[in-house]
């Protein structure tokens, strides 16, 4: 994994964070440095090593299909930055997902 120059603007777009020009420059450098440190991992021979997602092994944790109480609507709507009646309101959506 060669440390390519990270396209901070593209990544910030994916992460939905607006960046100023200053930030783009600063993060580009900092993230580049960090990736440089991270590149030491390429020294590890991992071809035959399985990936670990969870370090404490576990499987089949499920709950019984039983319905329980939901939260009070006023409680949740009172958190909303903007609401309209019983709904959460957001600015216009440009496109389907």
């Amino acid at each position: 994994m060669a440390s390519e120059k990270i396209d901070v603007r593209y990544v910030a777009k994916l992460a939905r964070i607006a960046l100023s020009e200053d930030e783009v420059e600063r993060f580009e450098k900092q993230l580049g440095d960090l990736l440089g440190h991270v590149d030491v991992l390429s020294e590890l021979e991992t071809a035959a090593v399985p990936a670990t997602a969870q370090v404490v092994e576990s499987k089949n944790v499920e709950r019984a299909d039983e319905a329980g109480p939901s939260l009070d609507r006023e409680t949740i709507l009172s958190m909303a930055p903007q609401r309209q009646g019983a709904f959460f309101r957001v600015p216009k959506i440009i496109a389907e997902p």
Binding site: E66, A67, S70, I76
Partner: peptide, 17 residues
């Protein structure tokens, strides 16, 4: 989660954390 899986109903009444 344990919220009811039912069609319809008053908006935002079948939600939990």
């Amino acid at each position: 989660c344990a919220c009811a899986n039912e069609f319809g109903g008053e908006p935002n009444t079948k939600v939990c954390p």
